[in-house]
Structure formats: C-alpha cells, structure tokens
C-alpha cells in the first residue's frame, strides 16, 4: 500500500509526519513530495513546527526532508525533529495498563461548535450505554444506571439522572446541558464529579449547563430567571 507509506497529521503545534520503519529514505522523500504537491496551496504562507515519528532518521535524511518541505510546500518550516513526546508517552504507559474509560488523545474530537451529532429519541434506561464519537442529543430522559459517552457535547431534552461523560476523548471545551440536570456522575474530559450524597429530589425543570474550567466543574443556568 503506497498510500499509507507517509501520512500527515495536523496537531495543535503544527504537523506530524508518520513514517513506516521499513521504507527507505528515497521513497519517503518521493511520497512526501507527492503529498505536498497534491496539497497545492494548502501550506502556503503558514509557519510550521514539523515532527516525525515511526522511523529513526539520520541528520542528513532529516535535512533532506526539511529542504524538500521548505522548497515545495510553500510553508515556512520552523523546525524538524523527531516526535519524542509520543515515544516517551508510549514508554510511560507500557508497564501500567492505561485506564480504558478516559483516553486522552492528541487528536480529540473538535466538532463542538459544529460537528457530527447523534440524536437519540426515547428514554435511556439503566444498563443502556450510548457511546458516540461526536455530539449526542437525547430527546427523552436518562435514568440512573444509564451511561452516555460522547466525544463532544451532550444535550438531554429531559431529566439527566445517569452517568454522563462529555468530551470523552479529551476535549475540555465540551459541555453537558439538560432540562433537569441531576446526574449520578458527571465527567467532562478527564474531570469527574459526583452528585451530593444527600438526595435532593427536584422535579421542577431548571435547564442547566455544566462545563469545566481547570479541574472544576461549574453548573450554571443558561436562561434568564423568569
């Protein structure tokens, strides 16, 4: 498969080039050139920190890629280096099994203002789990023992009494909104809060919005008092 020999990934800091161990430098250069020229004016005028991973490169090879990118892409390449962070992370997490439920990625779901959304109509009952890589809207109630996991926002048009996890792959901008927000447990990205132990039974619907700032979950009404 020639296609996957070299792949580009955009990151917060710039660009990561993912290489394969078995390929030689000439074919890598060729592939990069193809990719860059097919991207056309995409890179024009931007400045990039470029990292690569997947293969160890010598200084000369690094330089070749650097020159190629600088000349062909039209971008200002600020630096080119091996992506040591990912390697360090991989080594760190190797001995202890990574916690399965809260996976933080560098490339988390970003469609929070506008993005892929699932609509679920009906009551989500105990033991049911809705997991979606995007935003999630439930038109109905979410009962205790039910679980909603979404990589984007979670909106519940009803009472939210179960467990909810918004921004499940690491987006701290994600919010949880419900007409009656009383979750057993509320998680946004890697922050977890639980309901108070004293049960307050509230049945008058006050729409509320939960979000995080730092390590704290804030819950606000988003409608003016009427």
């Amino acid at each position: 498969m020639e296609e996957s020999m070299v792949s580009f990934k955009g990151t917060v800091n710039g660009l990561t080039i993912i290489l394969r161990e078995q390929d030689n430098i000439d074919s890598i250069l060729e592939q990069i050139e193809k990719k860059v020229s097919s991207a056309g004016r995409f890179f024009k005028g931007v400045s990039l920190d470029v990292k690569y991973r997947g293969k160890k490169l010598s200084k000369e090879d690094e330089e070749k890629i650097f020159n190629l990118l600088s000349n062909k892409s039209g971008a200002v390449i600020k630096s080119l280096s091996e992506d040591t962070e990912a390697i360090a992370q991989a080594q760190d997490s190797a001995p202890t099994p990574a916690p399965s439920k809260i996976k933080m990625r560098n490339y988390f779901f970003k469609g929070i203002n506008e993005g892929l959304t699932k609509f679920y109509k009906g009551t989500v009952r105990s033991g049911q789990l809705i997991n979606f890589d995007g935003n999630l809207v439930v038109i109905g109630d979410v009962n205790p023992g039910a679980e909603l996991i979404a990589s984007g926002n979670v909106i519940v048009m009803g009472s939210l009494r179960g467990i909810v996890h918004a921004g499940a792959d690491g987006n701290t901008e994600a919010v949880v909104v419900a007409l009656n927000l009383q979750p057993t447990q509320l998680r946004i990205a890697n922050v977890i809060t639980r309901s108070p132990d004293e049960k307050e039974v509230r049945n008058n619907f006050i729409p509320e919005l939960a979000y995080i700032k730092g390590d704290t979950v804030y819950i606000d009404r988003y409608l003016p008092l009427r």
């Binding site: 916690p99 439920k101 205790p144 467990i163 057993t184 447990q185 977890i192 639980r194 309901s195 132990d197």
Partner: peptide, 9 residues
C-alpha cells in the same frame, strides 16, 4: 450502600 455516584471502574 449509597455509593452509586462514586463508581468509575
């Protein structure tokens, strides 16, 4: 046991 809200794993 009244511990429902503490369950993560």
């Amino acid at each position: 046991m009244g511990l429902e809200n503490r369950i993560v794993y």
